Amino acid sequence: MNIRWLVLAVLLSAGVSVALLYGAGEVLSRPATRAIGPPPADLHARSVRIPSGSEEFVAGWFAATTAKTGAVLLLHGVRSDRTQMLGRARALHRQGYTVLMIDLPAHGESTGDRITFGAKESAGVIAALTFLREKAPGERIGVIGVSLGAASTVLAKIESPPQAVVVESMYPTIEEAVADRLAMRLGPFGATLAPLLLWQLPARTGAKPEQLRPIERIASLGAPVLVASGSEDQHTTWAETERLFHSALAPKELWRVEGAAHVDLYAYNPSDYERKVLTFLNKHLRSNG
């Protein structure tokens, strides 16, 4: 009798786990769309809608300058929107950079029916880069991508690479990203449940796990890259960040943000961020470096 009850308890527990993870898959891939509204007056930007498919578009803010000393595309993290990048945009604009901030597909005011962890978001990145080249002809272009924004950039097949790329808090593979997050919430055992989330990917997003491995694509960027992450980040561990850096081709730089977890690295320490990232961008966008 005791054995029978034990078996039933195990089966019930397994069933509950599967149901919870199935629900988690729905929540994680659900669009994070919302109204954003006009840009803040101090940014001197205008709202734009950039076509990214037959009936798709990405929404954003475009702040041009007359300095002609470089343009930067800013890409937010998962379930966020362009407002996450306002601090960076203001800092860059003060330095004379033209700035484009977009909502990635299925975020903010952009179209999209599912968050796909970089697979379909990469089309929005390509569309935004095309727009930026048209509106800032002849200027050297940089990209700053945070988490999902970073992965979407690295996974995009960009025909004309930018001249500098900053990737922040980017996962190396979707398998590790899922395992890390489950382990944070459920302990070491949680990582073993990752396959229960991953098998949902193709049905929910149209992307297979093998398509979501930025570590296998970062060497194809064709641009100088700055890889940044927090020393205490458990969503993407420092060991994983180091592997990403080692997979990238030179010229490359690695920035360990001491004490930072999986947070907005600009908000965590604006002065250090501006010093490190602006130095990197100035080197590659305003010189022959």
Score class of each variant (00 low, 15 high):
A32D: 10
A35Y: 06
G70I: 08
G23P: 00
L100S: 12
M101L: 15
V18T: 14
L74G: 14
Q84L: 12
D103E: 10
P51Y: 09
F57T: 08
P105Y: 08
V78C: 02
T83C: 01
G77A: 15
Y97P: 02
L12K: 02
E55W: 05
V48P: 01
A59Y: 03
L75E: 10
S13R: 02
D103Q: 11
T33N: 11
L21E: 05
R114M: 07
L20P: 01
L11E: 03
H76N: 12
A63T: 05
P51D: 13
E26T: 11
R30V: 01
A91W: 01
P39E: 09
S122N: 11
S54G: 06
H76Y: 06
G23M: 08
G112E: 05
A71V: 02
K68Y: 00
T83L: 06
L12S: 14
A119V: 00
A71F: 03
S122I: 02
H93E: 03
L86G: 06
P38M: 13
M85L: 11
L43W: 03
G53H: 05
S17Y: 00
G15D: 09
A67S: 14
P31Q: 12
A45F: 00
G96W: 02
V48F: 07
G87T: 06
P39T: 10
G96S: 11
F57D: 10
G23A: 12
H44G: 13
V27S: 09
E121W: 03
I50W: 03
A32G: 12
A106P: 01
A14P: 00
A59W: 00
A64I: 00
A14I: 05
M101D: 04
A9H: 00
G37A: 10
